[in-house]
Amino acid sequence: MPKCNHCGAHVSERFARVFANERGEIHACVSCSANAGIAEAAKERARGA
Protein backbone atom coordinates (compact mmCIF):
# COMPACT_ATOMS: atom_id res chain seq x y z
CA MET A 1 0.00 0.00 0.00
CA PRO A 2 1.42 3.41 -0.91
CA LYS A 3 2.32 5.92 1.77
CA CYS A 4 3.11 9.59 2.10
CA ASN A 5 6.86 10.25 2.02
CA HIS A 6 6.37 13.27 4.28
CA CYS A 7 4.37 11.87 7.21
CA GLY A 8 4.25 8.12 6.53
CA ALA A 9 0.45 7.88 6.42
CA HIS A 10 -1.03 5.22 4.18
CA VAL A 11 -2.90 6.47 1.12
CA SER A 12 -5.14 4.71 -1.38
CA GLU A 13 -3.92 3.42 -4.73
CA ARG A 14 -6.26 5.93 -6.36
CA PHE A 15 -4.73 8.83 -4.41
CA ALA A 16 -1.25 7.65 -5.41
CA ARG A 17 -2.19 7.50 -9.10
CA VAL A 18 -3.36 11.11 -8.98
CA PHE A 19 -0.81 12.78 -6.69
CA ALA A 20 2.41 10.75 -6.90
CA ASN A 21 5.31 12.09 -8.93
CA GLU A 22 6.93 10.20 -11.81
CA ARG A 23 8.93 8.09 -9.32
CA GLY A 24 5.81 7.16 -7.34
CA GLU A 25 6.65 9.43 -4.41
CA ILE A 26 3.83 11.17 -2.56
CA HIS A 27 5.04 14.37 -0.93
CA ALA A 28 1.75 15.43 0.67
CA CYS A 29 -1.40 13.61 1.74
CA VAL A 30 -4.68 14.46 3.46
CA SER A 31 -3.07 13.72 6.82
CA CYS A 32 -0.34 16.36 6.49
CA SER A 33 -1.80 18.89 4.07
CA ALA A 34 -5.13 20.63 3.54
CA ASN A 35 -7.20 19.09 0.75
CA ALA A 36 -7.16 22.31 -1.25
CA GLY A 37 -3.37 22.51 -1.08
CA ILE A 38 -2.25 18.92 -1.66
CA ALA A 39 -1.08 19.47 -5.23
CA GLU A 40 0.71 22.69 -4.37
CA ALA A 41 2.36 21.20 -1.28
CA ALA A 42 3.44 18.14 -3.25
CA LYS A 43 5.08 20.33 -5.89
CA GLU A 44 6.89 22.43 -3.28
CA ARG A 45 8.14 19.44 -1.29
CA ALA A 46 9.26 17.68 -4.48
CA ARG A 47 11.33 20.71 -5.46
CA GLY A 48 13.00 20.70 -2.05
CA ALA A 49 13.73 16.96 -2.08
Score class of each variant (00 low, 15 high):
Ala28Thr: 01
Ile38Lys: 05
Gly37Ile: 04
Ala20Gly: 11
Arg17Ser: 11
Ala16Cys: 07
Ser33Leu: 02
Ala16Gly: 03
Ala39Asn: 02
Ser33Gln: 10
Pro2Ile: 05
Lys3Thr: 12
Ala34Pro: 02
Glu25Leu: 10
Arg23Pro: 00
Ile38Val: 15
Ala36Met: 09
Glu40Met: 12
His27Met: 09
Cys7Leu: 12
Glu13Ala: 11
Val30Pro: 13
Phe19Tyr: 15
Asn21Leu: 05
Phe19Trp: 13
Cys4Ser: 08
Ala36Phe: 11
Arg23Ser: 06
Cys4Leu: 10
Glu40Lys: 11
Ala42Leu: 00
Ser12Pro: 04
Ala28Val: 04
His6Asn: 15
Ala36Gly: 13
Val18Gly: 00
Ala42Gln: 11
Ala41Val: 10
Asn5Ala: 14
Ser33Pro: 01
Gly37Gln: 13
Ala28Arg: 06
Gly24Phe: 00
Cys7Asp: 10
Ser33Ala: 15
Lys3Cys: 11
Val18Ser: 02
Cys29Met: 08
Gly37Ala: 13
Ala20Glu: 04
Ser12Lys: 07
Asn21Trp: 04
Glu44Met: 09
Ala20Asn: 03
Ala20Gln: 05
Val11Gly: 04
Ser33Glu: 11
Gly8Met: 13
Glu13Lys: 10
Glu40Phe: 03
Ile38Cys: 05
Lys43Val: 10
His27Leu: 11
Ala34Asn: 09
Glu44Gly: 01
Ala34Trp: 05
